[in-house]
Amino acid sequence: MSDERRMAVLSAIVEDYVQTSEPVGSRALLDRHRLNVSAATVRNDMAALEDEGLIVAPHTSAGRIPTDAGYRLFVDRLQAIRPMSRGERAAITDYLEGADELDAVLDRTVRLLSTLTRQVAVVQYPSLTRSIVKHIELVPMSDTRLMVVVIMGTGRVEQRVVPTGVDYTDGPGLEALARARSRVNAATRDRRLTEALHALGTLHAEDTGTEDALTAGVLDALDDALADERETKVALAGTANLARSPSDFPMTLEPVLDALEQHVVLLKLLGVEADQDEAGVSVRIGSENPVSGLHTTSLVTSGYGSGDEQVGTVGVLGPTRMDYPATMAQVRAVATYLSRIMDA
């Protein structure tokens, strides 16, 4: 059996099974696809694919379905990601353009992606450690408290209230606050947060008197923000889509739902490095997922970022019986547009 013909038969089985959710037989392949071979040849090819562990008979019948290995070979041999239609691209632009705040942008992102793919969509909030500091604002709350507001290039905002021993609400205090604000921003602007912390440490060592208390407060606030980085959130939408095809989860949906309810698990899933294709899309199929409860699912992800820096991951999770070419295109398109928003 030639490799080219083997892939044609495997691709036909994957496409038919994704569309119908029914095991695929040789007669159906001949009726639906231009394979230009005899029925006997198709049966021989299917037998060889089964011997290689790429397809399997779910029960005693002439039909076969892809295995995880079959899906993997199919995805690896895709010549190109299916292009999205002009209408689909316009829908992404129109829907995401209306949001300004980060929470709203990411909420719209997962709602849009779950609608496009009819799967579960998930997006990781931008990582603080990979983000760029755009501005630090110092706001006196009272004569004993100061709010430190850190605005990242991704739109993420961190706020901390720190105690002060000086009244910064009027007179000399306001002047000292203005000087400190200027120096803090000059030291941190357009730097990654970890680099900004180092620069602030140097500034803190050089400062004296009143401004020293301010830079110490800013350092404490940023240290707290980094300590909370492990609690980075995720946004999720479309869980109900899993119930559209109960036959894809013949045993139970419970382990999948349990995993989706745990943000720590989702962050682990999104943070695992996976091979990406040239378009920056990665696909993990079945047991390739590091979470045992998700071995009946596939995860398609793509990174998004600000400038050249990837700050988070967006993707969809669904049954292994997934339209991989379309899903990969949709995830990539949404990740690309999300990156543009971060750079705006």
Rank of each mutant, 00 (worst) to 15 (best):
residue 111 R to Q: 13
residue 227 A to D: 04
residue 282 S to M: 01
residue 268 K to Q: 12
residue 213 A to K: 09
residue 70 G to Y: 13
residue 108 R to C: 02
residue 171 G to V: 08
residue 198 H to A: 03
residue 82 R to Y: 04
residue 48 A to N: 10
residue 30 L to K: 11
residue 91 A to E: 11
residue 136 I to K: 12
residue 237 A to C: 10
residue 281 V to W: 01
residue 261 E to Q: 11
residue 216 A to W: 02
residue 293 G to H: 11
residue 202 T to Q: 09
residue 145 R to M: 01
residue 175 E to F: 04
residue 163 P to A: 15
residue 319 P to K: 03
residue 190 D to Q: 05
residue 16 D to W: 01
residue 117 T to R: 05
residue 51 D to K: 09
residue 92 I to C: 03
residue 122 V to H: 03
residue 279 A to T: 08
residue 66 P to I: 04
residue 204 H to A: 14
residue 139 V to A: 02
residue 52 E to I: 01
residue 294 L to C: 07
residue 101 E to H: 01
residue 56 V to E: 13
residue 117 T to P: 03
residue 154 T to H: 00
residue 165 G to V: 01
residue 308 D to E: 10
residue 6 R to Y: 13
residue 6 R to G: 07
residue 11 S to F: 03
residue 150 V to Y: 06
residue 64 R to C: 05
residue 156 R to L: 11
residue 322 M to T: 07
residue 66 P to A: 05
residue 88 E to Y: 02
residue 196 A to M: 04
residue 111 R to K: 10
residue 115 T to N: 14
residue 30 L to N: 07
residue 22 E to T: 07
residue 74 F to C: 10
residue 77 R to M: 02
residue 107 D to A: 08
residue 271 G to S: 15
residue 128 L to K: 12
residue 229 E to Q: 14
residue 296 T to K: 04
residue 98 G to P: 00
residue 301 T to K: 11
residue 280 G to F: 13
residue 69 A to M: 10
residue 297 T to Y: 02
residue 65 I to N: 01
residue 205 A to R: 08
residue 296 T to W: 02
residue 213 A to N: 15
residue 112 L to T: 06
residue 224 D to Q: 08
residue 201 G to V: 03
residue 139 V to T: 10
residue 193 L to Q: 12
residue 185 N to P: 00
residue 219 L to G: 15
residue 30 L to S: 09
residue 329 A to I: 09
residue 186 A to R: 15
residue 247 S to T: 10
residue 164 T to D: 09
residue 267 L to D: 01
residue 13 I to P: 03
residue 17 Y to H: 14
residue 19 Q to G: 06
residue 136 I to E: 02
residue 310 Q to A: 12
residue 36 N to Q: 10
residue 311 V to M: 06
residue 252 T to D: 14
residue 343 D to F: 00
residue 206 E to D: 13
residue 84 M to V: 08
residue 290 P to G: 04
residue 306 S to K: 12
residue 296 T to M: 08
residue 56 V to M: 04
residue 89 R to Q: 13
residue 182 S to K: 14
residue 141 M to D: 11
residue 297 T to F: 00
residue 335 A to W: 08
residue 149 V to L: 13
residue 25 G to T: 09
residue 257 L to I: 13
residue 289 N to S: 01
residue 40 A to T: 15
residue 95 Y to F: 13
residue 290 P to T: 11
residue 105 V to A: 08
residue 82 R to S: 07
residue 14 V to I: 14
residue 66 P to Q: 05
residue 327 T to A: 05
